[in-house]
Every structure is written in C-alpha cells, then in structure tokens.
Nucleic acid binder design. Structure first.
Lengths: 402, 402
DNA sequence: CCTACTTTGTGCGGTGTCCCAACAAACAGG
DNA sequence: CCTGTTTGTTGGGACACCGCACAAAGTAGG
C-alpha cells in the first residue's frame, strides 16, 4: 500500500479545492515537509498543478495547488431502454468526451445492444487518447437488478433481460486494458449527486423517476449497496396496498402512484395530445409545466397528488435514514417547482425528528447524464484510492530532485 | 497514526478468530516477519495471547494467537423508561461486570435518573478495576432522538425528556478519565447484533420492539447514523394512514400496528389478565406463547396480523436497503416462532429482488442486554482502531527483545 | 529410522515514509 | 529598515515494513 497519505492529499484537494501545502499539512495532521513531498510526487504523476497564490493575511503567502485532470480519465457508460450513452471525465470533473445513441432495447437482441454500447465506449476511449489522456477504468450502469457478487444482471424488467453477464460480455467486446465493472444505473445517478467535500451531500437519498422509479442511498459519502447489491429499489416499496397493479406483478408499488405513467393518467385523458406516444419526454414535461403555470386545475391537482405520494414515501425513508437531502432526479427535476410544496409538507408532517431531521428537498441539475457521470466518478475512484496507479508523466524528469 | 497494520492484525483476530502469524501475514498481505513483529507488540500491550497450535496438513504447525481480553474493558450503559443498566465487556467479548436497576423514569427527576445511572457506572468501573482491568470508554444508550453534533437528547417521547445534554451531565457526575459518549439506544442494539467477521451480519436491519419501536441499520459493518444521527426511527414510518393515532401525534405510525400495545389490544380484552399492569413483560409474552401453542384462535390471529404488519414494513425497508438479515429484537424475539411465517410470506411477496434479495429473518438472542452490549462494543472500538491507546502491561519486560 | 520436503517463526540489512529541527524566502506592519 | 509571521525546502533520524536467509517443527515416503 504505497503511501496512504498520497491518496489522502489527493482527496483533500478534490474535496476542499485548491489550497497551499501548509494548509494541507495542518488539515491532514502532517508536517509541512511531508505535505510538500507528497504534492511533489502528485505533480510528477500529473495529478496536481500550481494554482496561483493563497493570501492568508500575515506572513508569506502560500502557493496553492489544485487537481490537474490532465493525465487520466474515467469512463461512465449506461444501457437503458431508450438509449446507450457514455461520458469521460477527468480528475477535476471536466467532461472530456460524451456520446449518446438512441435505440429501443426491446426491439433489439441483447448482443446487438451490447455491440452498440461497446462501439460508443471505443469512440469515447479514442477521444480520450486524442486528448492526450489515459483511461483508468469504465463503469457501466444498467437499469435492473445486479447481483454484484456474480457481476450478473439478474433481471431487468424494463430492458426485459434476464441473467445477462453484462460485465463479461462487454470486456470481451472491448478487450480493454482498463477494468470494466457494472453497477446499478440508479445507484450511479446517486453517486453523481453526492458532491465530495460538501457536507450537505454526504448523506443523501436520491429518487430517480422515469416510467419506473429507482434510487440510491449515499451514507457518509459512500454508496450503500446492500448485501447483494440490490439496495435502492424504492419504486417497488408497496405504499398503496389497495391500489393499481404494477409491472412487476405486485399491487400498489410506489411507482404505480409516483411514476411517470401515474402523473400522465391523472393529468390527461387518453386522447390528450400529452399522451401522444411520439412526444418526447422533455416536451411532455414542458407542456405539463406550461399548463400548471397557467393554473390549469386538473394539472395542478395531478401534480399535487404526485407530490403527496412522493412526500409520503420520502418521509418513510427519511425516518429510516435521516439524509441531509432528498435529491429528486429524472423526470421529477423538470417539474420540481410544482412538486416541492406538497413534498415538503408531507416530509414535515411524516418525519418524527424535529424539522424533519433537517432534511432538505432538492432537485437534480444533472439531467439525464447523472448515471454516466456517476459511472465515471466510480472509475476515477481507483486513482483517488491509489494515485500511483495513474500513469506517470512522460515529459517529467524521472527521478530528478527538482 | 502509529502503525495502521497493528489495528489491522487485531481486527483480523477479532473477526476471524485464533490463527497463526503466517496466516495473518498471507490474509493481510504482510510478510511473516511483519506479522510476527506486530503480534509481538500486541502481546506486550496485553491484547493477544498464544492459543495452542494450528495444524495445517503439511509442514511445521503454526502457533495460533487469539484475542486476550485481559487488560481493557469497554462499558456500555443505558437509560430507559423502566430501568438503567450497565455492562462491561473485555476485548474478547466476555462479560466482566453487569448491573441493572429498575426505576420509573417518568416519576423521577432527570437529575435523579442520571444520578442512579452514574452510580451504576461507578460500580461497574470498580468491578473492572477489581478484575485488574482498565476502562477505555463508556457509551450510553438513550431511548430518544439524539442530535449527535450537539450531544443532546433532543426529545425522548417515552422518557418525557427534552433537550437534555446527557453526555455532559454524566461526564460531570463521573469525572471519568475515559471518554463518555452517547448514542441512540436502538442503534446500539443494532451494533450488538452485527457480529464482526460474520459476512451474514455486516449488512443488517434491526427492528427493536417494545411499547415503541426503534431500530438501526448496519451497512458494511458500520452503523448508519444519518446526517444528524436520527436514522433508524422505523416506528414512526406511516404505514397505515387511516389507522390509529400514535403517541407522537401522527396517525398510522408503524408502532401503532406493530408495537406491543397493538398486539395486546388484538389478543386480549381489557379485563383479560394479560392486561394486568402489574404483569411483567416476560410473563405476558410467555402467556401469549402458551395460548398460541394451545391453538387459541384469537391469539393466533393477533400474532398473524402482527407478523403481517411487521413483514409489510420489513419488505419496504428491504427494497430500500437489501440487508443480509432482518434481526427482530426486543419483545419480538420472545414470540419469534409464531411470527416468522407471516413475516417471511410478506417479505417474499413484497420484495422486488428474487428470493427477497436473499434477506433472512432472524430473531435476537441477546434479550434486553442488546443496547448495553452495543455500547460496550462501541467503546472498545477505540482500542481496535488504535491498539497503542491501550495501557501497556505492567508485568511485561519493557523494551526487551523477547 | 532416516531423508526429502513443506511450512512456520525469527533474525538482519535495506528502503521508503514520515517527523523534527533548522533555515531561507516572502509578505505585513511599525 | 527591521521585526514578526507564515511558507516551503532541506537534512538527519526514527520507525515500519519488505526481502532474504536460516533454524525449528512437522509430514510423506522409503
């Protein structure tokens, strides 16, 4: 384990932003000499760079150092019913490459979908190399239940896939030099929301809504995966036992009352243009917002009821988990301003802890890139855990004393 | 941070039981010489001792080492409505001292309850010293909402306490040389169930039932506390919106249908001897078991309904958290054999993941010592995190080469 | 019984990381 | 200009761990 403190310094720069060597030393309980040596090593690895001066009142000003994303990238990928997508992020969180391909996974063979995804990953990898950077790993988000011990997509209700070894299949197609892992799509979206270093984003509950509902729990900055990796399946918590039948076969799942379909059913008749199958999701949501802004009673009632159901479930989960924030992602984010009041009401009413345990209701700003961003973030964790794994700078003086 | 590997070796011995130096080395990725040196250091600290030979087929047999609880103890304490209690555990988990005092916290002033608890802790401490051991810390479980950042009991509905700084009050009374911390009682009970080293007890959900309901979540072997420390308040998840009013003021909280009162209401008329206020809890539960064993229809129906409600809530939490096991503690444990079928039915029916995500239903065997045991365990964590904090053996050759 | 082989535990020298102390560099204030 | 303060670097030393060699303690097979 070569120098755990090296990783410590790197993470501190990620979490706290640019700062001087002296500040790093005091914050991490190291001596200035040790901090200096570690920063020097990280510079040689091409992971940090100088970032101007840090003026601190009295005494000599410090020379700040900051993350330098220049040498490595993590790739996040996603396979969903309607599209496959990839993104490449460098250490500093900058987007280096991004690709997206619309498709209908239900009309294609499994192998074909994986072919397309592999092609996208290859293009992303080429972009990364063209930018003079190195890929350190790829994490693929899949919409479905993943048995993490066996790297198997046990069941993907929306994809209609069963027992697909996505990781092995993709590794075979890519023949990549870097590790390829799989993870639940909603869990990755949750990781993307957990900004490192922000104390208000270390214990969060992410609820991701589309036709189905998923989510993820981040506790203490780390994803909660559960025993077999099935954690975060909020959509199938039974909240309305006498209610409607869910696609999963059960009755009254949360997604039957808070999924996209429930909103559309409540807000529009079957012949309403809102129900036109050719209408894109973004356009539907824009139309719902428009009607609500105009004060349309039926739309407002539908949104209010949706907020009530979300708030009810969120209150239960908040009693159990006491998150700092509940982040609503997916289609909820677009109509957030009309949902917030009823959600917050239910949260205040349904949570035992005073002021709902301090839990805030927030809406994601990541749009539909959340999952791939989370994937890239997880891939980059390898570097934050062991910076020496990053390829050394070729242009640096090797072994030089300065 | 003096030798992180020292702690690593100690924890490996706790989690995996007695084993040879060579096994420790290979399991932890150390060399045999390093493992030997570390074990020697732990022996000097009085934390481990020889434990016979370990025969491994071919070659020279190893000399196993094991935890030696001989030098240090952690104290767990508890303040509840009906009693205060303490326990002292050594490193190996042996009970060194145990005290319990029945009282009615509602009829006593806050200061008086704390006086009694402090007295109990002092007696426990004296017992520990009399056994030739040293106290390394004390963790107090309190039934109520604890704001962890401020070490404050925000509100204890059953104790009827508000904004009591339990930690500071107790420190003042004890003037102890060791750290005194507070923690939610149910959370401590959860920690006590999470056996270190047992993979089936690293991700668990503990549901603790008495008149109220509480619980705790252990994820990856670590207690999930949430943003402010309010996690695990399962009892006030609203599962029956049209149901009965709860003591907390809300309607339909889980504990209104799965708390002890709900069971008694369903199983016995007001004039039933089961409702005699002088009857101890243990006796009530024994009587319920007796009637159920005899096939009493009303009792069986009440137990079945209770199991249904528990199973329903457990299924929701299992969808969210995917625990390896749901451990039912408190009064549920005593009547477990009559609850299991209906709980398991609901779990299988209500959880999305196949086979309910592999989640088992288990019943606690710790009785009402769970919370204090958890407290002592947390206190001992200080030693497992930094073994050098333990007092060195006075009878050991200091600095000797052997 | 004796030999070959395997595995364990313990020395010894070397390396790398970090702490401590000292010092030059850079800035503010009088 | 001089003093006080803070930063970054340098060199010496402590300590933990690795790699290697070697004695100790067993099994397997003749």
């Amino acid at each position: 384990m070569p120098s755990a403190n090296l990783a410590l310094v790197l993470r501190q720069l990620r979490d706290g932003g640019p700062r001087s060597r002296a500040r790093l030393a005091t914050e991490l309980g190291l001596t200035r000499s040790a901090a200096s040596a570690l920063v020097g090593e990280l510079e040689d690895l091409g992971l940090v760079r100088a970032a101007g001066v840090e003026r601190g009142g009295l005494g000599r000003p410090g020379t700040a150092v900051e993350l330098d994303g220049g040498s490595v990238c993590g790739i996040g990928a996603e396979v969903n019913v309607n599209h496959v997508a990839t993104i490449a992020l460098d250490l500093a969180g900058n987007v280096v490459a991004e690709h997206r391909l619309a498709l209908d996974a239900n009309r294609l063979a499994v192998a074909e979908v994986l072919d397309r995804l592999a092609e996208l990953v290859r293009r992303t990898e080429a972009d990364v190399r063209a930018a003079g950077r190195e890929v350190v790993g790829c994490v693929v988000g899949v919409a479905g239940l993943l048995d993490r011990t066996h790297e198997l997509l046990t069941v993907g209700p929306n994809l209609r896939w069963t027992d697909v070894p996505v990781g092995a299949e993709l590794r075979g197609r890519l023949g990549a030099a870097y590790p390829v892992r799989i993870e639940n799509e909603s869990n990755l979206a949750a990781i993307a929301e957990a900004t490192p270093g922000d104390p208000g984003r270390q214990d969060i509950l992410v609820i991701f809504g589309e036709v189905g509902m998923g989510g993820g729990i981040v506790a203490g900055g780390r994803l909660l995966r559960g025993h077999q990796g099935y954690a975060g399946e909020f959509g199938h918590m039974i909240v309305d036992p006498g209610g409607r039948r869910c696609g999963c076969g059960r009755v009254g799942c949360w997604e039957t009352v808070a999924g996209l379909r429930a909103l559309l059913d409540a807000a529009a008749d079957p012949d309403d243009p809102l129900r036109d199958p050719d209408l894109a999701l973004d356009d539907r949501l824009a139309e719902i917002n428009r009607r609500a802004d105009l004060g349309d009673a039926r739309t407002l009632a539908a949104l209010d009821q949706l907020g009530n159901w979300i708030g009810m479930g969120a209150a239960m989960l908040t009693n159990a988990l006491n998150p700092a924030a509940i982040v609503l992602s997916g289609y909820y984010a677009a109509i957030g301003r009309h949902l917030r009041p009823s959600i917050e009401d239910h949260l205040l009413a349904g949570v035992l802890a005073p002021h709902a345990g301090g839990t805030r209701v927030e809406f994601s700003t990541l749009g539909f890139t959340a999952a791939v961003r989370g994937g890239a973030t997880v891939a980059l964790d390898a570097v934050f855990d062991d910076p020496t794994a990053a390829p050394a700078r070729t242009d640096a003086l090797t072994g030089g004393t300065r």
